[in-house]
């Protein structure tokens, strides 16, 4: 069992067959927002790059402590919105105003005349363009969000972590991934111990 009062003894490494498995990450547990923010600043300053903080609640300012760069998601949203606007414009023009003489009849526009307006008049088309912009931007944001987070992911070795269970309730975790160039099974553990965690756990790859 993990002894939460004594971090030295709380280090939890897999035993038996699992001990030979490839390490996935070191997980360090903290009990308060202030502690995990201090720890995150130290990890950032130690130049780790593939790591994360898990918290049951949003922590304002954690991005600074972690040295995170702003997300590129807004650019994905903007570009999808622009594409949506362009397609919307093309669509209403096609549906309302195309004549396409000699083409197949089923690609011909409706040429629907309303209250004597020109067939292709921008004011009437703005609402359609607007809605298409919103639709594309929203779908682009959702897909971009999933893509940037590598979701959906069917399995994650962290699901096997015992410490992770309380990260959804009352504990805060710093997770240093084995993919980090600085990761070292022994050295990273020693480094994490200096941050004063209440528990450490080595998570191994799924077998």
């Amino acid at each position: 069992m993990v002894d939460y009062d004594s971090p030295e003894q709380a280090t939890d490494e897999p035993t038996g067959q699992a001990a030979a498995a490839r390490p996935y990450a070191w997980v360090a547990e903290f009990t308060s927002v202030a502690d995990v923010m201090r720890a995150a600043e130290r990890v950032r300053d130690a130049n780790y790059s593939v790591w994360d903080v898990h918290s049951p609640l949003p922590i304002h300012g954690i991005n600074r402590c972690m040295g995170l760069r702003p997300t590129i998601l807004p650019w994905i949203t903007l570009s999808h919105g622009l594409v949506g606007a362009g397609l919307g414009l093309l669509m209403v023009w096609w549906i309302n105003a195309t004549t396409a003489p000699g083409w197949l009849p089923n690609v011909q526009g409706y040429q629907f005349l309303a209250s004597g307006k020109p067939l292709f008049s921008l004011p009437a088309n703005i609402p359609v363009i607007f809605e298409m912009t919103i639709l594309f931007a929203a779908i682009g944001t959702l897909l971009g969000l999933l893509g940037l987070n590598k979701l959906p992911m069917l399995s994650n070795p962290l699901h096997q972590s015992r410490l992770m269970r309380r990260a959804t309730a009352d504990r805060f975790l710093v997770v240093i991934d084995a993919e980090d160039p600085q990761f070292d099974r022994v050295g990273t553990a020693e480094f994490l111990k200096t941050l004063g965690p209440t528990a450490l756990e080595l998570v191994v790859e799924d077998s």
Binding site: G116, P123, A124, P127
Partner: peptide, 12 residues
């Protein structure tokens, strides 16, 4: 502004 304009423009 556009909504006000468009409704009046369309109703004619």
């Amino acid at each position: 502004a556009f909504s006000q304009y468009m409704l009046i423009w369309y109703a004619h």
